[in-house]
C-alpha cells in the first residue's frame, strides 16, 4: 500500500496551534516538533528513552517524544516548553527553577519542566516521596538534582496558593 518513504500528512496540535506537516512514518515526534514545527525547546539527549530531555505532554501526560512516532501523535493535544508560559509571565515552575537555581546548562530543563507540569496538573497534592520517584525519570548532569526538587516543590506551593486565591 504505502512505501516507507511516502510522506504522510499529519497534524500536530502543539500548544494550541495546528501544524500541518508531511513526514515519513519513521519520523519521531521529537524530530517532527523540532524540525517540522520549529520548536527546538524539546531536546534530544539520548533517543532511547533514558534521559527524558525530550519529555512533552501528549493528552496531558508526560511522554518521551523520542519513543513516539509523529504519526502516532496526529490530532492529539501536545504541549511543549514553548507553550508553558506563552507570551506572558513565566509559569510558576519556570519562576521556581530560576529562583532555586534549578538549572545550569539548561539542556535537560525543558524535559524536567514538562515532566513536573504534567505531574502537578494531575496530582497537585503529590507527596515528597512520590514526587522524588517521578523526578528520578529524567537525567540532569549539572545540578545534582536537589535544586530541581526544591524548585518543583516551591512551584507546587505557588500553584496551590494561586488556586486558593482564584
Amino acid at each position: 500500500m504505502t512505501s516507507p518513504h511516502d510522506k504522510l500528512a499529519v497534524t500536530l496540535a502543539v500548544n494550541g496551534r495546528d501544524y500541518r506537516i508531511a513526514v515519513e512514518p519513521r519520523r519521531s515526534l521529537a524530530d517532527a516538533l523540532r524540525e517540522d514545527c520549529g520548536l527546538t525547546g524539546t531536546h534530544l539527549g539520548c533517543e532511547h528513552g533514558y534521559c527524558g530531555a525530550c519529555t512533552v505532554l501528549v493528552d496531558g501526560v508526560p511522554v518521551r517524544a523520542c519513543l513516539m512516532l509523529a504519526v502516532q501523535a496526529h490530532g492529539r493535544p501536545i504541549r511543549t516548553v514553548e507553550g508553558l508560559a506563552g507570551d506572558g509571565p513565566l509559569h510558576p515552575l519556570q519562576e521556581a527553577f530560576r529562583d532555586e537555581h534549578g538549572l545550569q546548562c539548561g539542556f535537560c530543563t525543558p524535559g524536567f519542566l514538562m515532566l513536573a507540569a504534567g505531574v502537578l496538573e494531575r496530582e497537585p497534592d503529590i507527596g515528597d516521596e512520590a514526587l522524588r520517584e517521578i523526578l528520578s525519570a529524567n537525567l540532569c548532569r549539572c545540578t545534582g538534582y536537589q535544586n530541581i526538587v526544591k524548585a518543583v516543590r516551591a512551584a507546587a506551593r505557588r500553584i496551590k496558593e494561586a488556586a486558593g486565591r482564584g
Binding site: G41, H43, T80, V81, F97, G106, T109, P110
Partner: peptide, 15 residues
C-alpha cells in the same frame, strides 16, 4: 541566563 533557557529559547548546536 535563565529566562531564555526556561522558555525553550536556548540555541544548542542541534537547534
Amino acid at each position: 541566563e535563565d529566562r531564555t533557557l526556561l522558555t525553550g529559547g536556548g540555541r544548542f548546536a542541534a537547534d
